[in-house]
Design a protein around this nucleic acid. Structure first.
Lengths: 252, 252
DNA sequence: AAGTGGTCTAGACCACGCT
DNA sequence: GCGTGGTCTAGACCACTTA
């Protein structure tokens, strides 16, 4: 017992390898149910926990996901393409269209969990605005749900003195959104910086995006600048990495 | 026994939460050792597997990493900043400098596992070059190790007929690298497209980058275009997400 | 040599979903 | 109702590091 030394590598890894290869060979397609714990215990003659470890490995790799009471299923990957630069070109939001219309053609977008409030700026935000920590900022947080699947959590920070009284402090910012309003206020965004990180989600993020185990998130932190390096907005976004491909097109 | 219903959520989650909060509160700093399995069994009065699950959860979140025979330790996050657009501006490689010099100032970069060969183009690559599947391509794969830590795996594909006989087919491509040579050959890259995905690593990627559990990878697929949409190179990169922040700067 | 995490067994009860 | 995955116990041996 516990003689793991048979084939040089752990039993659960060998079982996981078998399943992985079967998936990649197409024996199990997206959405198909994989052999369950009981199946694996029988076919590989192992204990419960060992079969579980094998299935758990596949889930941690993002290849499979479990549904309680139903089984473990092969995952699908059909991402949205988010064109980082074109979507923020002036004509997008200049003409009253949401910058989202570029990404979501022909699909159903719902924005929910909208919350607009004013609070003291967290340190990292205050630092960008070059204001003292604790200066008031307008905070707009939202969730984007595409065809029933939550794909993005967004939290946007703007200096409160800049936007007070404008539609930006309302839930509905009107045609063209925040950037159109900033333009009207004399702070037209002319330059953007996007910082991209990738990591495993926090518990809040996992539940907010309805992520299954083994799905990382993409963090995009976008800073919008009015002319001459004047930052007017910081937007922190959390994206379901299984729902997105980011694209940046630029000249040498 | 197995009365998990005490506090509404699983025991291992409660233990993980305790540790997570302690980490975020700074009680355990980067590199510090967390309480081990035996500690947790004693302090929380649980079985081995339950303590393991708690520590496993933290590792899957990327918050901690285990070292066999030593313990579980809080992870650090000190990423490189990769400026996607500036690093590919003409003056970088035009002057004989590697585009890497922009990222790695003052650090030790080693390139190893260099392999240059010719093979038939995989389907996705042939599609980009608009050649028939199986057309010959020059494949350059390398690994970049920064201060002893592998951070990036790169595989670059170029049409074989375009580069045959040039230094691009050598291990050392000379000053300015592949892009300087392409320019000399009359295929100056003038436009780039980078596609970014994020997912959990394959086993090969995890071992090649020496990743610990719970670390996703960033995939960058860059296509370089000579004038008028003529693709001349496809570079597929796998980045350790704990080592990188990507940055894209652009005008509206 | 002692302690650590990695793997494994053989049982158990639970909540959930539906073949 | 029955099978599913989710959680948990109480043991065990192993390989590795030296905190």
């Amino acid at each position: 017992m516990a003689t793991q030394g048979n084939g040089r590598q752990p039993k659960y890894q060998r079982i996981a390898d078998t399943l992985r290869e079967a998936i990649q060979a197409g024996e199990y397609g997206p959405g198909d149910r994989l052999p369950g714990e009981n199946d694996l215990m029988a076919t590989h003659d192992v204990a419960r926990m060992t079969a579980r470890q094998a299935l758990g490995a596949l889930q941690n790799e993002g290849l499979a996901e479990s549904r309680k009471g139903a089984g473990v299923f092969v995952r699908d990957f059909k991402p949205l393409r988010r064109r980082g630069i074109q979507r923020l070109s002036r004509d997008q939001w200049g003409s009253g269209r949401s910058i989202w219309s570029a990404d979501t053609e022909g699909r159903t977008l719902v924005v929910d969990q909208v919350d607009v409030s004013e609070m003291e700026a967290p340190e990292r935000i205050a630092k960008v605005f070059e204001s003292e920590t604790g200066a008031p900022v307008c905070v707009r947080s939202r969730r984007f749900v595409l065809d029933g699947k939550p794909v993005l959590l967004s939290t946007s920070y703007l200096p409160a003195d800049l936007v007070s009284g404008s539609a930006i402090t309302q839930e509905d910012t009107g045609p063209g959104g925040t950037y159109a309003r900033l333009t009207e206020l004399g702070y037209k965004p002319v330059h953007f910086r996007e910082e991209i990180r990738c990591r495993m989600p926090s518990r809040d993020e996992a539940s907010g995006l309805d992520l299954s185990m083994g799905t990382p998130v993409i963090m995009i932190c976008r800073t919008a600048f009015a002319d001459e390096n004047h930052p007017v907005e910081v937007n922190e976004m959390i994206l379901d990495s299984a729902s997105y491909v980011l694209e940046y097109d630029f000249d040498a």
